[in-house]
């Protein structure tokens, strides 16, 4: 038994090192004084973070990304609430194929989604804009939101709803007074996940970006200039902290939701 556990320890150790290698290097180079991103380290500086505060193009890209991410989070969660509620509560004609189709973007290569939306936008004579990116993001985020919300809706006890009907509440009131509070944590988790995915999405944004860049498109442009790399590392560190912060909040809400419905916590996200 010991030998087996020992092997696992080593394997898991190496695996975690492999998994975290890039994420660990990010803050190291962000605080490194040298303007070349490589070892050996030369000293400590916060200069690269200060550069971020004065970069106008970066601020514009960040604003675009935030706008897209917030819109995406709201709309994909709305669409996902409808789909998750429909698929968990009702059995209807073609449920499995409809759900399979709606979840398809999860396994479809992003380049296919990017290309096909580009073709439609150009054929229809629309201009590429932040809206086109938002549409693409809603499409790819919705399946993730459905995955989260389905488990939230599935854990609902149907008798609570029936009790509400028996006590004379309308369908609308039942939804707002009984169902909504119970799935609220799932909704918050879904909003945050969609926001985080959209904020970081590059492939679709790159295909559909018109003249206004999003944050990842801006980063892609800067990767070519070695002099810009240290400040990109600083930017990456900030983004990493924001993502982890949002995910911790999302996870907190997910756990709270699970506690509310009185089921044992067994898994993580997705």
């Amino acid at each position: 038994m010991r030998g087996k556990i020992g092997f696992f320890r080593w394997f898991i150790g190496f695996f975690l090192l492999f998994l975290y290698a890039p994420a660990m290097l990010l803050p190291i180079f962000a605080f490194n004084a040298s303007s070349i991103v490589s070892f050996p380290l030369t000293g400590f500086t916060t200069e690269w973070f200060l550069v971020l505060f004065t970069n106008e193009t970066l601020h514009l890209a960040a604003r675009n990304s935030l706008l897209i991410a917030i819109t995406t989070a709201i709309f994909s969660t709305l669409l996902a609430v409808l789909a998750a509620r429909a698929s968990t509560r009702f059995s209807f004609f073609g449920r499995r194929s409809i759900m399979g189709f709606v979840m398809l973007p999860m396994v479809l290569p992003e380049i296919i989604i990017g290309v096909s939306l580009l073709v439609v936008i150009i054929q229809m004579g629309f201009e590429l804009s932040l809206w086109s990116i938002t549409m693409g993001h809603i499409l790819i985020c919705t399946p993730f939101c459905i995955a989260i919300l389905s488990s939230a809706f599935m854990n609902l006890d149907k008798s609570l709803e029936e009790a509400s009907f028996d006590l004379g509440q309308t369908r609308w009131n039942t939804f707002w007074l009984v169902i909504f509070p119970l799935v609220m944590p799932g909704i918050v988790a879904s909003l945050l996940i969609a926001f985080t995915i959209s904020l970081d999405e590059f492939i679709i944004a790159f295909f559909l970006a018109g003249t206004e860049p999003t944050l990842p498109v801006y980063i892609w442009g800067q990767l070519r200039f070695p002099a810009k790399l240290p400040s990109l590392m600083a930017l990456g560190t900030v983004l990493l902290l924001v993502s982890i912060g949002l995910l911790l909040i999302a996870d907190y809400f997910r756990r709270r939701g699970i506690r509310k419905t009185g089921i044992e916590n067994t898994g993580g996200f997705l």
């Binding site: 009702f90 209807f92 809603i138």
Partner: peptide, 28 residues
């Protein structure tokens, strides 16, 4: 019926996916 309520609920999501996924794929 249950079937109609389910279909009605899912229709916005389905329409969105049809418009932004099925139609573009057909056009490609």
């Amino acid at each position: 019926s249950e079937s109609a309520q389910g279909l009605f609920l899912i229709s916005p999501t389905l329409c969105f996916a049809l418009l932004l996924l099925a139609v573009p794929l057909v056009m490609v």
